[in-house]
Amino acid sequence: SELMNSSKLIRMLEEDGWRLVRVTGSAHHFKHPKKPGLVTVPHPKKDLPIGTVKSIQKSAGL
């Protein structure tokens, strides 16, 4: 199965306009000026399962 580095996923979010608002432990929480909701990324993780990545991307509207 495909894995993604959390840094790469965070870069994709930031390029889309998401900004880090809070860190709780290894959970990084992002908000967007125009899009609704809060997106949480486990970080640092070298090997996020593709299912997790897809669900984060979906929440972020990517």
Rank of each mutant, 00 (worst) to 15 (best):
P44H: 04
M12W: 07
A60Y: 01
F30G: 00
T24K: 08
R19W: 13
V39I: 12
S6V: 03
G17Y: 02
L48S: 01
V53T: 05
P33Y: 09
S59N: 13
L20G: 03
H28C: 05
R22I: 11
H29A: 11
K45F: 10
V39E: 01
L38C: 09
S7M: 09
T40M: 12
D47G: 08
P33D: 11
T40H: 10
G25E: 15
G17K: 03
G61R: 05
K31V: 14
P33V: 07
F30T: 00
M12R: 07
V23T: 07
L62H: 03
H28L: 05
L13D: 00
V23I: 14
E2P: 12
L48I: 10
K46Q: 14
L20K: 06
L13Q: 00
V53N: 02
W18N: 00
S26W: 12
E2R: 04
H32A: 00
W18H: 01
K54V: 10
S59G: 07
R19S: 09
E14Y: 12
K8C: 12
L20Q: 06
K31Y: 08
P42D: 06
P36M: 08
V41S: 00
L20W: 04
V53P: 01
N5M: 15
E15N: 11
I50V: 12
R11E: 12
K54R: 14
S7C: 09
G37H: 05
V53G: 02
A60N: 01
G17E: 05
D47N: 14
G51K: 14
I10E: 02
V23Q: 11
E15H: 09
S55N: 12
L3G: 14
P44R: 03
K34V: 14
I50C: 07
M4N: 09
M4G: 08
H28M: 06
G51A: 14
M4A: 09
I50E: 15
S26F: 12
V21F: 12
V41Q: 00
T24A: 11
H32F: 01
I50D: 15
V23H: 07
A60V: 03
W18A: 00
K58R: 10
I56S: 01
H28R: 07
D47V: 14
P36G: 08
G25Y: 13
E15Q: 13
V21C: 09
K45A: 07
S26T: 12
K58C: 09
K58L: 13
S1V: 12
L38R: 10
R19A: 10
R22W: 15
Q57P: 01
K46T: 11
G37W: 04
L38N: 08
P36R: 09
G37R: 06
P49M: 05
T52E: 07
L9N: 01
L3E: 11
H32W: 00
I10C: 03
S59L: 15
K58P: 02
N5I: 13
T52R: 06
R19H: 11
D16W: 03
V21D: 07
M4T: 15
V41M: 03
I56H: 01
K46R: 11
D16V: 06
S6D: 01
K54T: 09
H29V: 12
S6R: 03
H28G: 04
E15Y: 08
A27E: 13
V41I: 06
R22G: 11
V23G: 06
R22L: 12
S55T: 10
V53K: 02
T40C: 09
G37Q: 06
K34A: 10
L38T: 12
L13A: 01
L3I: 12
R11H: 13
K46M: 11
K34R: 13
I50W: 14
K54P: 02
L48A: 02
L38H: 07
P33E: 07
E2N: 12
H29I: 14
E2D: 14
M12N: 05
V41C: 05
E2W: 07
K35M: 03
